[in-house]
Structures are given as C-alpha cells and as structure tokens.
C-alpha cells in the first residue's frame, strides 16, 4: 500500500472540522485540520473502525401497530448496516413487546443485539 490522504468531517461538535489523515500502509502518519483534540480522536476512530447505532423497525404480529422501533444496543460496524437491515427484515415478533426486548440476537455475527425501543401492547381482542 502507498501513502494516501483520507478526508473525514468531525462530528464531535457543530463546528464540523474537515480533518485530513495522511495514511501510509494503513498506519496514520499525521492528522491535520482539527481545531481541538476531540477531532483527532474522532478521526482516528472513524478511520480505523467506523461504527454507527442502527435505528430501524421490525415487523409485529398482533400489536397496536404493525411495526416496533428497534436499534442496535451498541454502535455496530458501519459496513454491516445493510446486511443487518436484511436480517431484521426477516423477523416478525409477537406483541406485546417491552422496551429492551431482544429482537435479533448477535446481528450479522457482530456480537451486537437488536433491541426494541418502546413498549408495544397487543391489540385487545
């Protein structure tokens, strides 16, 4: 691998610094453009292992609504987001559901669970 410049917008605060990393052989050589130390930390992490919380919904049977909102319980690797969406789409859960219920365990083998983010009562028959 050769030397490369990676541009990352810092999101640690509203200033939104454009941080550039000089990268050689996958190793960060220098960091420029950040106006505070948080920018450097963010850019390092975002380069090495970008992660995101994934908020989405899952199908529900017998609930007051046909969907329950869910999220990854922790930030998960960014490249897995779209595969995780497919895995969650394959699931249907029965109401009632409680906030924190695990909807998909260990999504895409990331070690992260998908959990419900609200109570969802069953319809009254």
């Amino acid at each position: 691998m050769s030397s490369d410049t990676v541009e990352i917008t810092c999101i640690a605060c509203p200033v939104g610094c454009d941080v550039s990393l000089e990268v050689d052989d996958g190793e960060i050589q220098s960091i420029e453009g950040n106006t505070c130390p948080r920018g450097a930390d963010y850019a390092k992490e975002e380069y090495r292992n970008p992660t995101r919380i994934l908020p989405t919904t899952a199908r529900v049977a017998g609930g007051v609504l046909p969907r329950v909102p869910v999220k990854s319980a922790e930030p998960m690797p960014k490249p897995e987001l779209e595969d995780a969406m497919a895995e969650i789409a394959a699931v249907e859960v029965d109401a009632p559901i409680e906030l924190g219920d695990v909807i998909v365990e260990n999504v895409c083998d990331t070690g992260v669970d998908i959990v419900a983010t609200r109570d969802l009562p069953a319809t009254e028959e």
Partner: peptide, 10 residues
C-alpha cells in the same frame, strides 16, 4: 445518554 425518540417518550 443517547436515546431514540420512543425511548425518550416512554
């Protein structure tokens, strides 16, 4: 802490 909208509401 960082919550989703439904968690905040609940």
């Amino acid at each position: 802490e960082e919550l989703t909208g439904p968690e905040y509401a609940q």
